[in-house]
Design a protein around this nucleic acid. Sequence first.
DNA 1: TCGCGAGCTGCAACCGGTTGCATGAAACAT
DNA 2: ATGTTTCATGCAACCGGTTGCAGCTCGCGA
Lengths: 326, 326
Amino acid sequence: MAATIRDVARASGVHVSTVSRTFSAPHLVNAETRNRVLAVAEDLGYRPNRAARALTTGRTHNIGLIVADISNPFFPPLIKAAQAHARTRDYHVFVADTDEDPQVEEELIQTLTKQVDGVLLCSPRLSNRVIERLHADVPFVVVNRRIKGMPTILMDVAQGARLAIEHLTGLGHRRLALAAGPSGSWTSGQMREAASAAAAASGAELVILGPNAPTEQGGLAVAAEVVASGATGVLTYNDLVAIGLIEGLYERGVRVPDDVSVVGVDDTLSGRLNRPKLTTVAMPTSAAGRIAVDLLLQSVGDGRTSTLTTLETRLVVRESTGEARS
Amino acid sequence: MAATIRDVARASGVHVSTVSRTFSAPHLVNAETRNRVLAVAEDLGYRPNRAARALTTGRTHNIGLIVADISNPFFPPLIKAAQAHARTRDYHVFVADTDEDPQVEEELIQTLTKQVDGVLLCSPRLSNRVIERLHADVPFVVVNRRIKGMPTILMDVAQGARLAIEHLTGLGHRRLALAAGPSGSWTSGQMREAASAAAAASGAELVILGPNAPTEQGGLAVAAEVVASGATGVLTYNDLVAIGLIEGLYERGVRVPDDVSVVGVDDTLSGRLNRPKLTTVAMPTSAAGRIAVDLLLQSVGDGRTSTLTTLETRLVVRESTGEARS
DNA sequence: TCGCGAGCTGCAACCGGTTGCATGAAACAT
DNA sequence: ATGTTTCATGCAACCGGTTGCAGCTCGCGA
């Protein structure tokens, strides 16, 4: 149906190899010939078949991007940034959603392997062991998880957690809670450690509640425990959990920030939440998307590189936190 | 690096064609041979290269999914449903985001064309003419837009708009506004017509405000016009616009629903918005994703089919609408 | 005038699979 | 014992490109 390189060759009276070179190594072909070939190609609507090209070059010019849950608003900015950035490098990004299921995650990686030059693993739920095994087949860049020997991009969630806890203790809260994330989440572990340390340093108490689903449901479900814990300041795994939690607290007649202060993480809903607007730790997701693509293409190019990039986070104070009532 | 079909053939003492058949037409090969080949393949970690297969079969077993903006919460459920459903058919979904830019949309379709068997066009911003031209190269299924001769899935936004307007007039509102969508949006045109008709039928006034960006920014920006219009009931292009609008109204001291009632469309934020919870028209996005994949695979299989599927919408009344103050 | 290098182009093998056709052996009917 | 199927496998061409190598032409210096 569509025109192939041989059609173009025939129509312009040259050998296929000349047509091939016209597109992939233009400087090797005479300007006159090149223009003729280009004209014919244009005329026939010829476009090189990337899959066929990949067969010989070993470069698909595609990269895979795997996320746990595309409906988590944390990911879209990262995805958008990665796509836009990859496009400037003549690469395409294929996004796949694992539904937070490690099994599906592994399958997806397996199938993607042959169709992409590298994979961006965002907040993977697989064990390090499995990831290392799969790494033999295809270059990875890992976002939000520390794995030795792989290019890694971390958002400094420990710093974020510290900022959040200090913000809460600074407001006078002495009894704090952390609504942790899912058990497979490396980030959640980091938050937990940093929050514990920061709380201890300020002489505040911290109870860990969880694991919780990283969703509004998870937040809604943990509300009862928060109330029972007697905490007046809560740090949540992410904004969705915070939203769900606030909702759950309201349902129990607990008001935010009057009775309990809540801090989210991600800053994904800036304008979205009406009352109260969420105090949260902002994550540099777009930057992470761009950098991830660069790292990946780099490691696709010159073999394994193992870099650790850590991006800073930032506390955004809005309306969901307030002074502790004495 | 990775094992190829020839490695497996050599190691198991059969011809490559036998190995090939073991995977793509198992019934043609003797059970004993098959098991031996499978064992060797397993041993070598062989997995058929889908790109190479695509070269001869013309089937990539991939489908493309193009959305205007992946951060619009309308899309993720659709994407998830499409991916999950496609996986059961041994297909993969590659998602691409156009940033609401028709130019980018066209480029993406062009590049995807050769790498997928068909493309799901969700809420396209391109003109019908361009879409029809591109359709020559690759099968399409179009969601949320009516294009003659292409398989189409529509959510009955006209019905939704009618329900919403009737809900508002039923509450006693006589002066209504529609915060329309972007100019390229077919859906927005449908809403406009249906809303006008429904308003006229109820003897209410309706002013059309827009076009607006289909985002919270768009809603925020249109708030002034809403206030100026004197409308007490507003239907918005989607939930994001509604959220932005409510925010903008609050900033101007106008309360929802006390002073102005707001109805969104999409039902994307159900639990998310705290006060007031959004009254909205629910869209069957997951169903659309599943059906879209089916239609596409079907039209990939037996050539062009042109079906029109219309899915019902549903009004979900929450807290952002209330009785008109007399 | 000859030799040589530079610049272009063609040849053909190859990437990793698929598939129509031919071959051969075993099973069956006559 | 012979002819006919059926089943399993091998052969080789093909999909749409890329690329190392060889050959040709031309210009230039000696």
